[in-house]
Design a protein around this nucleic acid. Sequence first.
DNA 1: GACTCAATTGTGGTCATCCGCAGTGTGGAA
DNA 2: TTCCACACTGCGGATGACCACAATTGAGTC
Lengths: 211, 211
Amino acid sequence: MSTPLAHIVDDDEAIRDALTWLFRTREVASAEWSSAEEFLAAWQPEWRGCIVLDIRMREMSGLECFDVLQEQGNTLPVIFLTGHGDVPMAVSALKKGAFDFLEKPFEDNALVDVVIRALAKDAKRQASQASQASVANHLALLTPREQEVMNLVLAGKFNKVIADELSISMRTVEVHRARVFEKMGVRSAVELAQLLAPSRDKGSGSDSGEH
Amino acid sequence: MSTPLAHIVDDDEAIRDALTWLFRTREVASAEWSSAEEFLAAWQPEWRGCIVLDIRMREMSGLECFDVLQEQGNTLPVIFLTGHGDVPMAVSALKKGAFDFLEKPFEDNALVDVVIRALAKDAKRQASQASQASVANHLALLTPREQEVMNLVLAGKFNKVIADELSISMRTVEVHRARVFEKMGVRSAVELAQLLAPSRDKGSGSDSGEH
DNA sequence: GACTCAATTGTGGTCATCCGCAGTGTGGAA
DNA sequence: TTCCACACTGCGGATGACCACAATTGAGTC
């Protein structure tokens, strides 16, 4: 199991050591990576925690690393560290979904606070995603026909009408319907609607932002 | 009705004129305000569009103006303009929900693009909020007893059980239930659940759920 | 060929929902 | 006082939902 970790990605060993020590004294578990490439090679989508990413590194920069991560579906909050960032860089990073953007030198407390908030955010995201994934798993257990019937049930149609539209008997609809309820772990169409309602929205927001 | 406007808030008349001219040539409707105070005094929550806010102004700064707006429930996207912003300022503004943060000098095209995206975002937000408000209006038509029954219906309970919990007859529950459907403009509990699924908090829940 | 699984259908019955009809009682507004 | 909105109730019937029991067919697997 992956424990939540603050992943420190920086090619400066002195800084890595300092951050590792800082996090250890604040009881924040962390891991060290000496380059963006090394981190990307190891990165797994199921990791939890957050990423503390230095912008200026010898090979791949932190910003490039961030882009690659986002393409690969990373959901971990990313905190950028930079010695000489400019405003457009910070704005771009945040608009692309970075969690925060800190200029060196920064207060130890400030960084730790941000990391702790990032860890909390990831934990929350993880929780809500877990329940959504569970629904998706149950949904995957349904046969095509069952899904078809389910959709019509959710459209509020009577079994009679569903039978008609699918050109099958009412009895068959009842059987499918019962199996859908059973497999989805609900006891009524109302519960089913509520279970599926949150995940039935369209479009993922691009940029967002509440805090 | 309020047309979507790009509200230009800047105490420098030359800049206001330039922006107004720029927007007009791009067919973006705009309005001018010569100070944060003037804008705040006129501001109405139902306005649509976006706000182009200069940071450095004589009296109240753009950042202060932004804080006041957020407190008052502003939902319009805010685009900051600044001649000499620093990274922490930009980061803070974006994390507090600003739409964008542009440093002068900027390309005309860049600003117009941002404004157009901001207007689009507001239009989208407005649309989704409208349907939500409509649901709220319908909910407000329900009598207290009807809302109570509705919550129990949405909990997936049988009329019999609802009658029991409220210590009334089944027939009365049926009457309330029918009125709820009628007033909410739905024809079944499933439709009701879907209508209310995105936005809802528990009220008057007696016992909690199982499953 | 035996076996599993998805899809299909019927019978007959129970329980829940929905509705029209016909009322009672209460508290506030005109 | 009259009118009205709200809450409440009973009866009986039509319709829908759910279920146990019992089967058939075709596709794909072992």
